[in-house]
């Protein structure tokens, strides 16, 4: 009989994850505390924790592991820190993939007793993700599906948060997401994005009509998030987004995971660099960017027309030309 690896912290229970950068094998209870302590740390670091009392939070709940974890943990904190929250699911209309996640969102909200709101991309933006992809493919346009879907989803979340008069939008972005986004910005040479992302830890923004973000899982590795999710008995849908493989993120993710295996803690170091760099260049880079409001929809934008309206117009134009 082979002996099982025990938790390095409690020395009692069976380990379920190896945290390579910390040199620790952890059991499900100790991992749970570990993840929740990281959430508290990121909320404290940004000063958000002390401001939550009496606030109203919109939580972007996609039905994936990260947003479910973020919802579950924020819901646990909501009583102690006295804030209210509502979940929002943006239905992209991606067939069974969207349907299954919507069902999971409704089920979770009912179980936890959280109010929820379902927002249809087709109804709000006039087009679903598959329809947009179809137009892009037929017109041989190089814009990737995630670039449209992501812009529309962010746009709708902010719109709903404004409509609901919410103080914050909570998203399930984990440490891996943040590191990948940073590397993608570096590859594109997108210095503005790096400067803007400096505030992604939850700094208050002073842009009218742009609701401040909170990312509770900012310091949590995606792998830790998945094990937290599974050990809490949440259901994972069997389908993957059919368009994810077109994203550059896929390539970057593999590369970073490879680096992380060779040099444990690499992701943390990249995240630290991202924050440092972002803070240092923020003033210089963003002082030349004047935030205004989109001439079409009135939402915040650094240009005359926001990216969401620009994409909407482009899709209409493309659909008329093939």
């Amino acid at each position: 009989m082979i002996e099982m690896v025990l938790c390095d912290l409690c020395k009692k229970r069976k380990a379920v994850i190896k945290i390579r950068y910390a040199g620790l094998n952890l059991c499900k209870e100790c991992l749970s505390k570990f993840v929740e302590q990281k959430v508290m740390l990121s909320l404290k670091r940004t000063g958000v924790l002390g401001k939550l009392s009496g606030k109203y939070l919109i939580i972007a709940l996609s039905g994936g592991k990260d947003s479910i974890n973020a919802t579950y943990i924020m819901h646990k904190l909501s009583q102690e820190y006295d804030f209210k929250m509502k979940a929002v699911f943006v239905d992209e209309g991606i067939g069974e993939y969207s349907k299954q996640r919507r069902a999971i969102v409704m089920d979770l909200c009912k179980k936890l007793g959280i109010e929820y709101r379902i927002v249809s991309m087709k109804e709000e933006m006039g087009i679903s993700t598959p329809e947009a992809v179809n137009i892009l493919v037929k017109s041989r346009n190089s814009i990737k599906p995630c670039s449209v879907c992501g812009v529309f989803r962010r746009y709708l979340l902010n719109k709903v948060a404004l409509d609901e008069n919410a103080d914050y939008v909570v998203t399930g972005h984990n440490l891996d997401d943040e590191v990948q986004t940073f590397i993608m910005s570096l590859i594109r040479g997108d210095i503005r994005s790096i400067a803007r992302e400096a505030c992604s830890l939850g700094y208050e923004n002073d842009v009218p009509k742009l609701v401040s973000r909170i990312k509770p899982l900012y310091l949590v590795y995606e792998r830790e998030s998945l094990v937290y999710f599974i050990t809490h008995g949440f259901k994972r849908i069997s389908l993957s987004c059919p368009y994810a493989r077109f994203s550059m993120r896929y390539v970057i993710r593999e590369m970073i995971n490879d680096l992380e295996y060779r040099r444990p803690g690499m992701k943390y170091r990249i995240l630290a660099l991202k924050e440092r760099l972002g803070k240092d260049i923020r003033e210089t880079v963003l002082s030349s960017v004047e935030m205004r409001h989109c001439k079409i929809c009135g939402m915040p934008s650094s240009r005359d027309i926001c990216r969401a309206c620009e994409l909407k117009e482009l899709l209409v134009k493309l659909s008329q030309n093939y």
Partner: peptide, 11 residues
């Protein structure tokens, strides 16, 4: 069906 870590052994 139970989670194990990469430090565990199989036979």
């Amino acid at each position: 069906g139970k989670l194990i870590t990469e430090d565990d052994y199989v036979e």
